[in-house]
Design a binder for these strands. Structure first.
Lengths: 197, 197
DNA sequence: CATTTTATACTGACTGGTCAAATTATTCTA
DNA sequence: TAGAATAATTTGACCAGTCAGTATAAAATG
């Protein structure tokens, strides 16, 4: 039955995610995935063409999930400023919850140089992120709270600031400073969008 | 002779760098390094304790080199605005020259989760970067061209913007848009430092 | 000729992927 | 509906290949 098969695939992806989070992209073996999924080794090859296929689907899952959560976070907010705050809050949601996600995502970033498929998936992710940025900026311009000339460029800048802050956050080890990175990022993005120069 | 030995070690590090740039961190073998250095496999193990030792020294070399070039680029400039521009110019110096460097650096970023030694080296690198930022900001404040409350925070923000832009640049494939990422980053950082909000 | 340096063969561990056999689920038939 | 027949799924042993690290022999050096 197709439903059962889809469930198995999800189970394997979840296992792969946990394995990568724990051991890092390049040291995860098919056996690891099988162990985390509590199935035998052959199963992975039964539901996926090969290892890269598993990891491609995993990247798709991760980026889609990140985007959906970000998109959902701004949905209910009214003003551009509220949306922006909700957006940043969602990115830095909590050490336990998000650190793992972005840390696995970072593993993929370095693989993109050599895996065209990963790059494509990431490109889609970027475009999704940029569209969130555009939405917030455009609304802010209408409300008169932001002042930017080039919406496209500003959207890219927002993502740059988020990515850059995320990396320093991931490297910082110190979970206590988690909140400071968030407000930090928020203030910087506000400066980017509100500067009148 | 100590001099000869040091030369050999440099030769091996250079080979390792080329190998990682070409094949990616996790698929480089000791044999690859030997091949790029045009020596036999035994040499690498003679001059370095093991593979991680080679790669640790390589990361140290890369981050030191990036920092030195950045520090040198602002040395000769007079004003804070000139220094800032020179700094950003140095980061986005040219696709051929720097893309490889940062692309290898990105490979390391994802390894830091599991290699304490790498994290330490990177921490030193960050502190060097922050110190460059601080220097530029402090001078800009004195000259009255920048307006920020917290110098430390602003320095971190600059690096966030640079790192974030670098990543999107590395992923963009399109070398033609290289210049636009540079001016892009420059304008954003200016906005961060000059905003009067 | 003694020491340092380089080359090479080897080992033991591990990997991704294959596959035939075992197991389980589903369908068919009498 | 019992039970055989068929299909789908799961298992784990296996293979061919790769790797880091070691041991040792050979060569260079001074």
């Amino acid at each position: 039955m197709a439903k059962k098969a889809e469930q198995r695939r999800q189970q394997i992806l979840k296992a792969a995610f946990e394995a990568v989070a724990a051991k890092g992209y390049d040291s995860v073996t098919l056996q690891d995935i099988a162990d985390y999924a509590e199935v035998s080794k052959g199963v992975t090859n039964y539901y996926f063409k090969n290892k890269v296929d598993v990891f491609s689907h995993l990247l798709e899952w991760i980026t889609t999930r990140i985007y959906e959560k970000e998109a959902a976070s701004i949905e209910l907010k009214e003003t551009a400023l509220e949306k922006l705050e909700a957006y940043i809050n969602q990115v830095f949601v909590s050490p336990e919850e998000n650190k793992t996600f972005y840390s696995v995502y970072l593993d993929y970033l370095s693989q993109m140089k050599h895996q065209e498929r990963y790059r494509q998936i990431n490109q889609q992710f970027y475009e999704n992120c940029w569209s969130i940025g555009r939405e917030i900026i455009t609304q802010g311009l209408e409300e008169g709270v932001f002042h930017v000339e080039d919406v496209e460029q500003a959207a890219i800048s927002i993502r740059s600031m988020i990515d850059g802050t995320l990396i320093q956050w991931l490297m910082s080890q110190d979970d206590g400073r988690h909140a400071s990175y968030k407000s930090h990022c928020h203030q910087s993005v506000l400066r980017l969008l509100q500067a009148s120069s």
